[in-house]
């Protein structure tokens, strides 16, 4: 009995894993088989790449991938700069109103930009940023999560390093760049990976604020392509879905360790 229980648990663990993978396996199956044979699930059905070729030619997926790439990079670059500066200020400087301001920053942990789509759209319209990459990215550029994470990491570094660098004649930004940023690299990487995977997959706000193919990211393009009313066949949708998820999934599979470590680190807080 004592040996049987772990064996049973092991079986359950693998069964759950199989169950968890099965939707993706079905998508793979459908994407690589001719439409007529998809529903039959015959193991001897011939494999084909036709679905990928056809899906690729039916919608501008190359353009969508490029747009998503630009969007994700823009947000990441801006977040890195804004959040690092703010985290440094909150961690190492005493100024009046600091604690109140920090509390106000933390509000965004709960009230995420998705909730405020209506007014933010209004703002973007006033700024003339509707249907631009900047408009899609701007509400996310000062991430409370990033500021919080980096502030924790900066605070844990010994103050003596800071003092020493200043005695050597480093300016404020010099200390940040030469001492804090290099030492907080694991946190910056962790935040970066979490941010990239979040924004690669983000949908609602980009859907609202874009209306042309030249700006639209992958998720929005895929939603339009795969919407039931578009009448596109299931194998084509599977192929398109896999193509859209592939860049991020490939990156994840290649750097799995790094990804999971990053999520772990960001999760501990």
């Amino acid at each position: 009995m004592k040996a049987a229980l772990p064996a049973l648990e092991s079986a359950a663990a693998w069964l759950l894993a199989l169950l968890w993978l099965s939707p993706l396996l079905f998508a793979l199956w459908a994407a690589f088989h001719p439409a007529a044979l998809v529903a039959s699930f015959r193991l001897d059905a011939p494999l084909t790449l036709e679905n990928f070729v056809q899906a690729w030619s039916m919608a501008p997926f190359a353009r969508y991938i490029f747009n998503t790439f630009v969007l994700v990079t823009t947000i990441l670059a801006a977040q890195m700069v804004l959040c690092t500066l703010a985290a440094f200020g909150f961690a190492r400087y005493a100024f009046p109103g600091r604690d109140t301001l920090f509390l106000l920053v933390l509000v965004q942990l709960m009230i995420v930009p998705e909730v405020l789509i209506v007014e933010n759209y209004h703002t973007m319209a006033q700024l003339g940023l509707v249907d631009t990459v900047l408009g899609m990215g701007l509400p996310y550029m000062a991430s409370a999560f990033g500021i919080f994470l980096l502030r924790q990491s900066f605070k844990s570094l010994p103050k003596e390093l800071d003092d020493a660098a200043r005695i050597e004649g480093c300016s404020d930004l010099g200390v940040l760049w030469r001492v804090y940023v290099p030492l907080a690299k694991p946190t910056l990487t962790a935040f970066g990976l979490v941010s990239v995977s979040h924004h690669w997959n983000n949908f609602l706000w980009p859907l609202i604020v874009t209306n042309s193919e030249s700006v639209r990211p992958l998720t929005v393009g895929l939603a339009i392509f795969g919407a039931p009313e578009s009448g596109v066949s299931w194998p084509l949708i599977s192929a398109a879905t896999l193509m859209s998820a592939l860049p991020l999934l490939a990156a994840f599979l290649l750097f799995q360790r790094q990804f999971v470590q990053s999520f772990l680190q960001a999760g501990i807080k």
Partner: peptide, 8 residues
């Protein structure tokens, strides 16, 4: 330091 992020 905190101004840009807080403004956004």
């Amino acid at each position: 330091l905190v101004l840009p992020a807080v403004t956004v």
